[in-house]
Simulated scan of single mutants.
Amino acid sequence: MLVTDDIYTKDGTVDINKKPANKKKTGNWKACSFILGNECCERLAYYGMGTNLVNYLQEQLNQGNVAASNNVTNWSGTCYITPLIGAFVADAYLGRYWTIAIFSIIYFFGMTLLTLSSSIPGLKPSCTGDVCHPTQEQIAVFFVALYMIALGTGGIKPCVSSFGADQFDETDEVERKRKSSFFNWFYFSINIGALIASSVLVWIQMNVGWDWGFGIPAVAMAIAVVFFFAGSRTYRLQKPGGSPLTRIAQVIVASFKKLNVKVPADKSLLYEVADNESNIQGSRKLEHTDKLKLL
């Protein structure tokens, strides 16, 4: 019986078929290699189209420096707001795997539309010399693509690093040590993607053309999607735990109801018990602490 138990993870993770995750067949570096490849390509795509965006708005959409900078700032701010939506959807309903999968596809469609808007006649602004004359429809297509990308990155950014952490069983000492190495490689992959985007792709945009400058990030995003789905059979998935807002409300209500309850002298009585009543799907149990007296 003990041998059988050691085959599966003990942190509640399951495989893509919703069966208990097998330690030998799922997780660890065999799964993380796909996640790191996905992250590197996604960051290359993001920085590749975002780093030089002000110049595109000035040159192709004929915007002034102030308007172009303001539009890029608004878009960048949206990219940092949408992760709140992505994180909520992942934790409450879809789980990290399906959130990344769905939003990655939205991201890819946004990158594709952006590339088409800079290369296809009719979508691409017509230019006379150095002055371009975009129509309202062309501007609209460009901004639709831009904010599709903002929505897409909102589902990826908050989930990828924690999804990588899910591939290591916290209850296994060996795997727990490997997790710290994963984060080192994770941030290394981010910086590699950003380095290539900020140097090579910016040069291509300014010297070769915007069609290639946006087309290469679109291809990078396609590769990121392929990388992610290619590792599906090796992933460990944490089940979504329902709306965190509901659980926060439950804690607040319970804390007021039990204001007059005396704390037992035996701390073991304060631990959550291993039964269905105490179990929250997709969450790990927390040990008692003396640091917080109210909640």
Score class of each variant (00 low, 15 high):
Thr4Gln: 15
Asp5Thr: 06
Asp5Gln: 12
Asp6Leu: 13
Ile7Lys: 11
Lys10Val: 03
Gly12Arg: 01
Asp15Glu: 03
Ala21Val: 00
Lys24Tyr: 09
Ala31Ile: 07
Ile35Cys: 05
Gly37His: 12
Asn38Arg: 01
Leu44Met: 15
Gly48Pro: 07
Leu53Val: 01
Leu53Asp: 00
Asn55Ile: 04
Gln58Thr: 05
Ser69Asn: 08
Asn74Asp: 10
Cys79Met: 14
Cys79Gly: 04
Tyr80Gln: 09
Thr82Ile: 06
Ala87Pro: 01
Asp91Ala: 15
Tyr93His: 12
Thr99Lys: 00
Ala101Trp: 01
Phe103Met: 02
Leu113His: 03
Cys132Arg: 09
Gln136Thr: 14
Gln136Glu: 08
Glu137Ser: 11
Glu137Leu: 12
Gln138Pro: 01
Val144Thr: 12
Leu146Asn: 08
Leu151Ile: 15
Val160Lys: 02
Val160Glu: 07
Ser161Trp: 05
Gln167Val: 10
Phe168Val: 10
Glu170Trp: 07
Thr171Cys: 04
Asp172Tyr: 06
Lys177Asp: 07
Lys179Phe: 00
Phe182Ser: 04
Asn184Thr: 02
Trp185Ala: 03
Phe186Tyr: 15
Phe186Gly: 01
Phe188Asn: 06
Ser189Asp: 02
Ala197Gln: 03
Val200Gly: 06
Ile204Cys: 11
Gln205Asp: 10
Gly209Asp: 10
Trp210Arg: 01
Pro217Phe: 08
Pro217Cys: 11
Pro217Met: 11
Phe228Tyr: 15
Phe228Arg: 03
Ala230Thr: 08
Gly241Asn: 04
Val251Asp: 14
Ser255Asn: 11
Leu259Phe: 07
Asn260Glu: 14
Val263Thr: 11
Asp266Tyr: 03
Asp266Thr: 05
Ser268Glu: 15
Tyr271Leu: 15
Val273Met: 13
Asp275Val: 14
Asn276Gly: 10
Ser278Met: 10
Gln281Ala: 14
Gly282Cys: 12
Ser283Glu: 15
Lys285Glu: 15
Leu286Asn: 14
His288Glu: 11
His288Thr: 09
Asp290Lys: 08
Leu292Phe: 13
